[in-house]
Structures are given as C-alpha cells and as structure tokens.
C-alpha cells in the first residue's frame, strides 16, 4: 500500500515539524523578551489605547520593516 505508507510518514514528519516549530516559538518568545529585544505584553495595550490619533504601540525592536512590512 504505497499511498497509505507515504501518508503515514508524511503525517508523522509534518507533525514533528509543527511540534518543533511550536516549541521553538515558545523559546523564541521568551528569549527575545529576556534579551530585551521585544516586549510582547506591551502589545496587549493595542486594545486599550486605540484612538485614531494615539501613538502606535509597537514592540521596542528597531523596526526594520518600513519598506517590506507594509505587505
């Protein structure tokens, strides 16, 4: 059963990839906060301070995205 087996391996492989990615993300989140590159908790204030003329709340990182960030 070629397709069944392939499917099994593909599913196992992808599951591992996703699990690693998820845990990698956790590590990344905490590490970048520890190093002071980012402050995720500050982003929670986006909902609180949402007047159109209030200053954008951004992470403290040095925004390299002025050109490519705008989609």
């Amino acid at each position: 059963m070629g397709i069944r087996e392939l499917q099994g391996y593909a599913s196992l492989f992808m599951t591992i990839v996703f699990v690693v990615a998820l845990y990698g993300y956790i590590v990344y989140l905490y590490r970048s906060e520890k190093k002071g590159e980012k402050d995720y908790e500050k982003l929670g204030n986006i909902a609180l301070d949402d007047e159109i003329d209030s200053k954008p709340i951004n992470t403290s990182d040095p925004l390299p995205d002025e050109k490519k960030g705008a989609k």
């Binding site: 990698g24 993300y25 990344y28 989140l29 970048s32 990182d61 390299p64 995205d65 490519k68 960030g69 989609k71």
Partner: peptide
C-alpha cells in the same frame, strides 16, 4: 523566522 512572520501579514 518568527520575527519575520510577525512583521509580514501576508506570509
């Protein structure tokens, strides 16, 4: 990689 994803809504 994660940093990049957070900054690029399309990706």
């Amino acid at each position: 990689m994660f940093h990049w994803l957070e900054k690029n809504p399309f990706f």
